[in-house]
C-alpha cells in the first residue's frame, strides 16, 4: 500500500504529461461536453479515437487505463441491463413478463455504456498524467476569478494539496491499524453488516486520533515556517501556456465542432 500514490499518477515524460494542468482540465470539460452532445455512434467513434490517441501519446499502458473502469463496473452493468430490459421500441427481439428486448433498447444501452466508459477513462487520464501538485495549482488558478466573490480560493487549494499529501499517509495508517487489530483476532474480512459496523470502531477510533495528532503537528510545522495565509505569499511555480497547450486547445475545439456537425448531418440511430 505504501507505494500507491493517491491520484494514481503514472510517471512518464510525454506530450500529455507536459501539458498545462489548466489546459487538461478545460480539455476534459470539452471532452465531457462532446460525449454528451454525441447522440449517435459516429460522434462517439470520434471521441473514442481521440481518447485512444491521447492514451497512446501519454504512453500509459492501455490495460492500466482500462482497469479504472472497475470502480464503475456495477453501475455500468446495472444501467445497461435497465436499458436493455425496459426501453420500448419498434423492433422487438424478445419479450417475457414485463421485460422487452428491443433494437432501440440495445442501442441505447450501448450508447450510454460507451459514454460512461469514455467519461471515466478520460477523467482517469487526467490523474494518470498530472501530478497532484499540478492538479491543485491548476484548480487554484482556474478558480481565481472566484476570489472576487470572497471565496477563499487559496485556502481551498492548500487544503486540497495537504489532503493529497496526507491521504497516502493515512491509508498506510489504516493498513497498520487493521493489521494490528487483525493480529488481536479482529475478524475484519467476513460477517454481516452489523458485524462490519462493530469492527470498524477499533479501526476508526485510532485513525481519528492519529489524524488529529497529525493535524496538530502539521499546523505547528506550518506556523513555524511563517505561514500566515496568503498575505504577502508568492508562488514558486507559475503555470505557463505553451504551443502544446494551444494544440490541445485546437483539438478540443475541433472535437466539439466535429461532434456537433455529426449530430446535425448524420441521423440518430432511432
Amino acid at each position: 500500500m505504501k507505494d500507491v500514490t493517491f491520484g494514481q499518477y503514472y510517471p512518464r515524460d510525454s506530450f500529455v504529461h507536459r501539458l498545462d494542468p489548466r489546459m487538461k482540465f478545460l480539455f476534459l470539460i470539452a471532452y465531457i461536453v462532446a460525449i454528451f452532445l454525441a447522440t449517435n455512434f459516429y460522434g462517439l467513434a470520434v471521441c473514442t479515437a481521440v481518447l485512444i490517441a491521447i492514451i497512446a501519446l501519454a504512453r500509459v499502458p492501455f490495460g492500466k487505463v482500462l482497469r479504472s473502469i472497475r470502480g464503475i463496473l456495477v453501475l455500468l452493468i446495472f444501467t445497461a441491463l435497465l436499458n436493455i430490459l425496459f426501453v420500448d421500441g419498434e423492433t422487438v427481439y424478445a419479450q417475457w413478463w414485463i421485460f422487452v428486448i428491443t433494437r432501440e433498447g440495445l442501442l441505447f444501452a450501448g450508447l450510454l455504456s460507451l459514454r460512461l466508459v469514455l467519461l471515466v477513462l478520460c477523467s482517469s487520464m487526467l490523474t494518470f498524467t498530472t501530478t497532484p501538485v499540478a492538479l491543485t495549482d491548476g484548480v487554484e488558478s482556474l478558480l481565481t476569478p472566484l476570489k472576487w466573490i470572497k471565496l477563499p480560493v487559496h485556502a481551498l487549494a492548500l487544503v486540497m494539496s495537504i489532503a493529497l499529501r496526507m491521504i497516502p499517509v493515512l491509508m498506510d495508517e489504516v493498513d497498520r491499524i487493521k493489521n494490528a487489530q487483525r493480529a488481536r483476532g479482529a475478524d475484519l474480512d467476513r460477517g454481516g453488516l452489523m458485524h462490519k459496523i462493530r469492527t470498524t470502531i477499533p479501526i476508526l477510533v485510532p485513525l481519528v486520533l492519529s489524524a488529529l495528532r497529525r493535524a496538530d503537528e502539521l499546523g505547528d510545522a506550518m506556523d513555524a515556517r511563517c505561514y500566515m495565509g496568503d498575505k504577502h505569499r508568492t508562488k514558486y511555480k507559475k503555470l505557463h501556456f505553451t504551443w502544446r497547450d494551444l494544440l490541445a486547445f485546437l483539438v478540443g475545439a475541433v472535437l466539439i465542432t466535429g461532434v456537433v456537425l455529426l449530430r446535425i448531418y448524420l441521423p440518430a440511430p432511432f
Partner: peptide, 19 residues
C-alpha cells in the same frame, strides 16, 4: 510524516520561502 505540506520535495521546500 507530519511536517510536509506538498507531495513533491521542491514544492515543500518552497513553502516557507513562498510564505
Amino acid at each position: 510524516d507530519n511536517q510536509t505540506v506538498a507531495t513533491i520535495v521542491e514544492d515543500d521546500v518552497a513553502f516557507g520561502a513562498e510564505n
